[in-house]
Design a protein around this nucleic acid. Structure first.
Lengths: 341, 341
DNA sequence: CTAGATTGCTCAATCGATGAAGCAAGAATT
DNA sequence: AATTCTTGCTTCATCGATTGAGCAATCTAG
């Protein structure tokens, strides 16, 4: 601060000169293995004091270039703007740091091109392991990592080539569907088939959730029509549009809905509001994902909360165990106590 | 992929050997200035083909060590789990990439210790610029950066030593307060003083918002009591607890509330629900921050949406202009059209 | 036919940190 | 007193990419 505007940053050579010693001694002292290298504690203290005074900061690039392990762990994630991914990212950072790893995270907006570029960049930064969260093409990423001799793992959406940690979408969706159907029976007096809305029919999670959705209906002896399954994509506008179109088909819309993410729920709520059903207590909703304000929305929306800490614990277990066979680990989601309708 | 499990990653020397050329030619070709270095396009193509085949990825550590500029830009952010910071982070990544910079972001949980550590780590990674978002001690970070000859900027909360980009908290809060008071008059027939809840009295933003809150009351001739200002911290539990304590004081709580963030709003909503006021249409709320589901909460909650793209544009303008005088740039927040009550 | 320019490359130093190998001086052992 | 051990350092090669300097071959101009 009081120093002159320096263009060059302080290096161990500068410190060595100031301390009247060698760069190698400085290095040993500053990275903590000076005892192993038999540096006297007097010199160690002197060097540490000078480093402190000079505001020395390690040049990580130089250090990493020389070392065999980078201790960097990468994650790509589709979006930051919902509680599920926000929580994944925050928990991931925390757990990584707790293990002495440096997390780098990048958001790829569900864009396959960006995913590949991000993965390549992370490989350039010498990540030791790359977690592909909700990737559109996880196997592509696994291949890139494998070619560079780097481990990879899938989170949220499974891949065929690397270990995957995902929610138990089938069981979660089945239980959620059951609850919506039960609420629906209570409030409407009869059990009607629900509408499934949101997600991509082509992604594993959506497919599994639809399977759970069907099975819950079947268990309770309710038939599901094909036209009640709207895997229209995740974006709010897509859900909104899909409901408009489905409403145009003529028959009345189901009163009960299984919404496949909070993102889609935004669109559904906008539609509900626009169509004047906001205070309609006969609408019975459930959502596969959790958000604190949705709880308070008042329609007694059932929610499934994916077990983010549980999933990330599994991720780090896999990393630490060194496993890289393409297993799929399913973590049961948490289903909070039913909301009062 | 079909290669043998390689411990060593492919380097330009490997490529050079495969192509029967020198590492320096490979380097020139792969970083795009082979024309400048008069490499024939035949050789260039050959090298690029081989690099592709081998799945070569640059070693960024080596590259950055040699180059003068890292093109890395860092950001520290308090939390990921609300729309405001989620949006900041996502927009920041986008804008950084659009400018050819590599963004690294880390979450410091409003922990001063973590902030300093994160800043030091970022400096080690040779960031060219560090954005301290909502930092508890921005000036400490600016000092650390200055000592390393690195630029820094403050976002969301201002500092005294580096340029800062923040919301116009005063004007935003004044307008929000006016709206809540107006709604309150409409719904209750009279204009009562509001309760201010959430935030830290010691932070600049909260102080400015309280100033706007007071001014709006004064403008409309309403007196504000000191006990109606609860800067109890940001966490939901703190807001909840503060309301409990305030309710114990004996007098009735105000029917109108200015909530100082969506985070605090979570606690307020929990309290409202717990105390059986969830459907109480006489409660009149406003929140300084935006969330899509809050809009739908139905009590006609007024919201101020901070202009994240606007703020980040200013941030990058400052970076590009090279300014480092400690100015404070205030960006007006967006106040959506009033919700129907 | 030759001086000079141009083309297309290679060589080698360099960035900053690391750690194996080595060396000098003093302590301990025989 | 001679030998070995220990302590406390220093020297130097190395990690992979970059780039100024340089060199041989070919082309052009006179």
């Amino acid at each position: 601060m009081s120093q002159v505007k320096q263009t060059k940053r302080t290096t161990i050579y500068d410190l060595a000169e100031l301390a009247g010693t060698s760069a190698s001694a400085v290095s040993a002292v500053l990275n903590g293995n000076w005892k192993k290298r038999r540096i006297s504690s007097q010199l160690a203290e002197k060097i540490m004091r000078i480093a402190e005074e000079q505001g020395y900061a390690l040049n990580m690039q130089a250090s990493l270039l020389r070392r065999e392990k980078s201790h960097i762990i990468g994650m790509i994630v589709p979006k930051y703007d919902n509680r599920y991914f926000g929580s994944i990212v925050e928990t991931f950072e925390d757990m990584a740091r707790a293990r002495g790893l440096f997390p780098i995270i990048t958001c790829t907006r569900r864009d396959p091109q960006l995913e590949v570029e991000a993965a390549r960049t992370m490989l350039s930064y010498q990540v030791e392991c790359l977690i592909a969260t909700g990737a559109t093409d996880p196997d592509r990423i696994t291949e890139m990592c494998a070619a560079a001799g780097v481990r990879s793992l899938n989170l949220d959406l499974p891949g065929a080539l690397a270990p995957s940690v995902i929610s138990d979408n089938f069981a979660g969706a089945r239980e959620l569907t059951r609850r919506i159907l039960r609420n629906s029976e209570q409030r409407l007096g009869k059990m009607e088939p629900l509408l499934f809305i949101g997600g991509r029919g082509s992604d594993h999670n959506t497919a599994e959730r639809i399977r759970g959705f069907r099975e819950a209906h079947a268990d309770l002896g309710v038939a599901v029509h094909e036209e009640n399954i709207l895997a229209c994509g995740y974006a709010p506008e897509k859900a909104e549009k899909a409901l408009d179109e489905r409403a145009l088909v003529g028959q009345t819309l189901p009163r009960g809905m299984f919404v496949n993410s909070t993102i889609s729920l935004e669109g559904v709520m906008r539609w509900i509001r626009r169509s004047g059903h906001l205070d309609d207590r006969s609408l019975v909703l459930g959502c596969f994902d959790w958000d604190p304000f949705v709880t308070l929305l008042g329609n007694g929306i059932e929610m499934v909360r994916q077990d983010v800490p549980g999933m990330l614990s599994k991720v780090f277990e896999l990393i630490e165990s060194g496993a890289d066979k393409p297993v799929v680990i399913q973590v049961p989601p948490l289903i909070p106590e039913a909301q009062e309708a």
